[in-house]
Design a protein around this nucleic acid. Structure first.
Length: 501
RNA sequence: GGCAGGGUAGCUCAGCUGGUUAGAGCACGGCACUCAUAAUGCCGGGGUCGCGGGUUCGAGUCCCGCCCCUGCUACCA
């Protein structure tokens, strides 16, 4: 059975991972876990983009070989994602031989199927000797390189191989308009892509002369593949392409990317695949950015919170929860410690954590730790939340799904007040008390399943506290029809301890 | 400049095709309860709905103008 194949953008090996990267990986991980929750085999790809001018320069500046430089960065990124409980199945690095093989095979395939789409042309631009790279008009300040204002820019010509992107404009436009086999989401991003396509496309240069740090361009002496063209292909090369078996994984079901790189994923990448006569990914999801006190967090130089600081505050799962619940996976959102602390305390410590604590304590106190086998009472919000949650997760509405979790917690707390189990115990109303306790335990079981994609460690702790073995990783049927009657519970350490202060 | 999306309580946001006193969560104040992580539940204070016109019996919700914010308009990655 073909796995459900999800990818994140590969990060450029030229700096440290920051919260902006983290949102993407965590969101994609939550989506991957949601599919696994339903028993679907999933393949989750993450990785690193390790070629290009800037990497080469950074390595030189650090006095290292490019490979040693990217080796260190790759390890650092992967460890960071693992520490945030992102459970990828494959870690692709564009400096791996399997990737170079995929890139060259794809180029050769395009040349074979549509030879007219690859042609030699001349690239002309303003070259800064200080930076050793071409500058765009928009990058210039007073007609000079902002990094080296004392140097003259040199108008230079370079022979490059071009990809006839313009030839695919109509087909890509039709696909994006149809929004069926190839979907661009959310809609605001789709609209941007549509307007870009309607304005028309230019052919793009896809090779670089004089840059040794890259994949050799097939059929040339000294050219390397332009880093973006190379990078996009990682999604395909990670399937093993062109080795047998790649089509058991490809096409991707979802590429998760940042809103800043939709042009590459929604226009260039499908055009490349069309040129190669290969299937297109089913969907692209472009998330927004994390801001730090209203300012951009990405690309800045440590002026904002680090991932380590964020994870240390209340734990990795709490950081995951906050990013998906408060920042969100569609629009931009703000990260502040004030907000993080407030959400942690109200929703996790006082909300979910305290609910688990009081319910488990009552089951221990009134029933010796055994969940009664009575039939649970209906809780309208919780019962409806299961389907609503599934719909939200299917739509990548992680914020909405998280809100449903909070709604269920709120309803359960209200139910306790109304049912007053302590009064039932005092009055000897044993049957009624059984119903209340099994209803609450059932709700907790549901919550442990629903929170698993967001907070896998905490969800598992709750699952185990309810006497369940293993993890809720594939337990969606238990959310729909939870059965905990007869289970032996044990109250765990506080799931979400309040902060000492 | 063009295109797109926004500007609603201290903060984060809901408000569909215009209609009774503009809503939620957090924060804040009061009350209740005791199973619980001094948690929870109930009640309450708090808003010129960016600004100015207009249409209408009636506009946060439609039209015009203006101000402000964000993104896309780049072969940077």
């Amino acid at each position: 059975m073909k796995p459900w194949y999800i990818t994140t953008a590969i990060d450029y090996a030229n700096g440290d991972p920051h919260l902006g990267h983290a949102l993407e990986k965590i969101g994609a991980d939550a989506i991957a876990r949601w599919h696994r929750l339903q028993g679907t085999p999933v393949r989750f790809l993450m990785g690193m983009d390790e070629h290009g001018q800037k990497v080469f320069q950074s390595a030189q500046a650090a006095g290292m070989s490019p490979q040693a430089w990217v080796d260190g960065i790759s390890t650092h990124f992967e460890q960071t994602w693992l520490s945030l409980h992102c459970a990828h199945d494959d870690w692709m690095r564009t400096t791996e031989p399997r990737h170079a093989a995929g890139v060259q095979a794809l180029l050769e395939r395009i040349r074979e199927r549509h030879p007219e789409d690859l042609f030699v042309g001349e690239y002309e631009g303003l070259y800064c000797v200080g930076c050793e790279e071409f500058k765009q008009e928009g990058q210039l300040v007073d007609g000079r390189c902002p990094e080296h204002p004392s140097r003259e820019l040199v108008r230079t010509k370079e022979k490059n191989t071009f990809f006839r992107l313009s030839a695919y404009r109509d087909r890509v436009l039709a696909l994006v308009e149809a929004n069926d086999a190839f979907r661009v989401e959310p809609q605001i991003r789709r609209n941007e892509i549509l307007s870009t396509l309607r304005e028309g496309l230019q052919d793009i240069s896809i090779s670089r002369a004089r840059l040794p740090w890259g994949i050799p361009f097939p059929g040339t002496d000294d050219e390397t593949v332009y880093v973006w063209f190379d990078a996009l292909i990682n999604y395909l090369s990670a399937t093993g392409y062109p080795e047998a078996g790649w089509d058991a994984i490809w096409p991707a079901d979802l590429h998760v990317v940042g809103k800043g790189i939709t042009r590459f994923h929604c226009i260039i990448w499908p055009a490349m695949l069309l040129a190669a006569d290969l299937p297109l990914p089913k969907a692209i999801w472009a998330h927004g950015y994390v801001q730090w006190g209203g300012a951009k967090v990405s690309k800045s130089e440590g002026s904002s919170v680090t991932i380590a600081e964020g994870a240390e505050r209340h734990g990795a799962d709490a950081l995951r929860w906050f990013l998906l619940r408060e920042v969100g996976f569609e629009n931009d959102g703000d990260f502040t410690f004030e907000r993080f602390d407030a959400v942690y305390e109200s929703e996790l410590a006082n909300g979910l954590g305290n609910l688990a604590s009081r319910v488990l304590a009552m089951i221990e106190k009134y029933r010796g730790g055994m969940v009664p086998t009575a039939t649970p009472a209906a809780l309208p919000v919780a019962d409806a939340a299961v389907d609503a949650y599934a719909a939200a997760m299917d739509a990548n509405d992680l914020k909405g799904a998280a809100k449903l979790v909070v709604d269920v917690v709120t309803e359960a707390n209200g139910h306790i007040t109304v049912a007053a189990p302590w009064a039932l115990a005092k009055g000897g109303q044993e049957a009624e008390l059984d119903v209340v306790l099994v209803t609450l335990a059932t709700t907790l079981l549901r919550l442990s399943v629903m929170t698993f994609p967001f907070m896998p460690e905490k969800a598992t702790a709750l699952w185990n506290a309810l006497g369940q073995d293993g993890t809720p990783a594939a337990a969606w049927t238990n959310a729909k029809r939870p059965a905990v009657g007869g289970a032996s519970v044990r109250k765990p350490e506080n799931l979400f301890p309040r902060r000492e202060s």
